[in-house]
Structure formats: C-alpha cells, structure tokens
Computed example of a mutant assay.
Amino acid sequence: MSILKITMLGPSGVGKTSLLTAMYEQFEATIGKTNLQLTPDLESSALLQERLAELKTLPNSFEMKGWTESTDEEKSFIFDLGKKGAKPSLQLYFQDYPGEWHGAKRPREDKEQVEKFLKESVTAIITINTPALMEKNGQWHDEINRPQQITNLFQRVYQDLDSPRLVILAPVKCEKYLQTEESAQELLKRIKEGYSKLIDLLNSEALLPKVAVVVAPVQTVGTVVFSRIESSNNKPLFIFRKVSHDAEYSPKDSEQPLRYLLRFVLKLHLEGKRWKYFDFLREIFGLDNHLKDAIREFAKDCKSNGGFAILQGENWLKLR
C-alpha cells in the first residue's frame, strides 16, 4: 500500500495531538454520503480514543498548555484510506512527536529527527496556540509558538524541492476569535504578521511555484473559549472555560486540514506529471475512478472564508 506522510509540526503543548484527534473524529461525522473510509490502525485507534475521552470530559474552567497531556514520545498515527467496505488504497502516516524536541536543551538528534519528518512529508500542519498569538499583543507568541525556529526549520528542509508541498497553518484553541467575520479577519491578519518570515520564505521565487500555503483555523472542542491569562513564576497560565456548565464536546472545522490535504493529493494526480514520491498516485487513481470521485466529493467543501484562506499556490488546490 502506498504511504503519504504528514508532519504535525509545533512546540510542546500547542495542541498537535488534540488537533489530530478532532480531525479524525470530525471526518467520521462529516463524510455523510461520501464513499470514503478512514480507519486507524490498532495502536492509533486506542490512543485516539483516550484523547477523545479527555477532550469530552474537560472541566468547566481549567488551565493547561494544551487540552490533553503532552506527547511524551514519538508517535505515528496511521490511517488506511479507501472506499467503504473495500481494501484501502492509501495510508496516511501522521507523524507526531514531543514538542520539547524543539527545546534548546534537547539533544541534536531530536531536532534532526524533526527535520527528517518534514523532509519526508507531503504536508506540514503547523499547529498554532492562538491565545498566545492574540492576547496581550502577542506577548507569548515567540516563547510558545516559536515561529522563528519553525521558519529556520523550513529554511533548512525546503531547499531544491523536487516535488510540490502543502503547508497548513492551523490555529487551535481559537473559538473566542471566530465569533464574527470581523474577529476572524483579525485572526487571519495576526497569523500573517506572526508568521511573516515563514510566509515570506515560502513566497520566495524558488518556493512559490511548488508550495501551497493555507490557513485553516480549527475549533478543537468548539464549546471551550479562552478566558484569561494568569501568571506563575513569570510564566503564563492560559485559563479556558466552557461556554456553559453542560456544554458538550462540539468541534468545528477540524476536518478541514484533511479536506485540503486530500484536495492537494488529488490535484497532484490530475496534474499528470511524474513527481518524486507521488508517481504511485497515477496508478491508484487511474485504476479507481470511484475513489477519485469520493475524494473529490469530500475535498470540494474546503472553506475559504471565516478565517480560512489560501495564501499561495491556489493552482495546487484547483480541481477541474
């Protein structure tokens, strides 16, 4: 079976695993009549179930860097993708890792492993702690989201690309900032400012033709909003609260990164060129028009407003 690798990129506690959990759960809830099936392997299924249970039982008011326990070791979340009831055609290999690997005190080998993940991946999903970006004029953005370090990582890895890539900027914990179209546009503006160096790099002459960049905000829980920042030993404590005492887990748009990913993959096939790493797509889609149609149906509902935006590479996301 052919494998597509995706890196969940971001420092400790930003919410990479929570995003992945909500992404899978919402895929199951939104595929509707689409003839697609996304099946986690045994280990991924067990871990996702544990994380989903944590997200569904959050207290009314709480403080966490993330909403669930941080990842303490390298983990691969593996999903088989195909038509319902049929042998899967593709394997989506999401690489998660401890965000502490970005820390200055971590051994060089950890940082090199993150570079290896990114180099092998068709897509990078950069998970963004939104309150750190938005509150107090972004006072904690550099410390928590590490945008310069993320930019340096792409500078090293995205050199002489021999095939297209998709980069998704995915703000999470963003429920507070998507209440109105005006606030959603403010969030989009702040993302462009907070990641301006990365966006400028990807928009450079060498990378613009081969890299698509999307902003896809995800309301990972949906009924939890940022409340305030408290301080402890000169470190921020981000306090969140449920919108009501009996508010239930209700994520919104968490399947959107997956819609964009599959849209991008289908476009690579339709392009008709032989790209390194993606030549197998010609065989898969060429022999299975039903799978191609199912992915097209799922991918057509990619959002492009309300804080969502294609910053560049729209040609890599257009389906004819």
Rank of each mutant, 00 (worst) to 15 (best):
A216Q: 10
D288R: 11
W275N: 13
D160Y: 06
D96K: 00
P164L: 09
K87T: 14
P209W: 08
W316I: 07
S18P: 08
G306V: 12
R106Q: 15
Q95L: 12
L20Y: 00
E182W: 09
P131R: 03
L198I: 09
N145K: 07
D253S: 14
R106E: 15
R156Q: 14
L202G: 03
E230T: 12
E314A: 12
E120C: 02
S244P: 00
D301L: 10
R108N: 14
V221G: 02
R259N: 08
D288L: 12
I150C: 02
F278T: 05
Q179G: 15
A184C: 10
L90A: 05
A206Q: 13
V213I: 15
M23H: 01
G286C: 10
H102C: 03
E115I: 01
E115P: 02
E69M: 15
S183P: 05
L281F: 04
P217C: 08
P217T: 05
S227P: 00
S2R: 05
Y260T: 02
Q95P: 01
W316L: 12
D160N: 15
L266P: 09
F226V: 02
V157M: 10
D96L: 01
S70R: 13
F280Y: 07
R156W: 00
V224F: 04
E181L: 12
W140K: 00
E175I: 04
T68H: 11
Q159K: 15
L262N: 04
F285C: 02
K292Q: 11
Q312L: 01
R190I: 07
L20I: 04
E112F: 04
A309Y: 06
L287G: 10
A124C: 09
S227L: 11
K273V: 12
L153V: 03
K267S: 12
Q26T: 11
D110N: 11
K235F: 05
T68F: 10
L90D: 04
T180Q: 07
L36K: 06
H290R: 10
F226D: 01
V14R: 02
L47F: 15
Q26D: 15
H290E: 15
T7I: 12
W316V: 06
I6W: 03
P171G: 08
Q159E: 11
N129F: 09
A46Y: 14
V167E: 02
T30E: 09
E73F: 13
E63T: 14
N137W: 09
V215E: 01
S183C: 02
I310F: 08
K276C: 11
R165Y: 02
Y93H: 11
K33Y: 11
L169S: 06
T68W: 08
E193P: 00
D142K: 15
H141E: 08
A247M: 09
G10D: 01
K189Y: 07
F240G: 01
E73S: 13
D160I: 01
N137C: 06
T180V: 05
A299L: 08
E193W: 01
G272E: 08
M23P: 01
Q159W: 05
A104R: 13
P164Q: 06
Y177L: 07
L178N: 00
T68R: 04
H290Q: 14
S304C: 06
E175K: 08
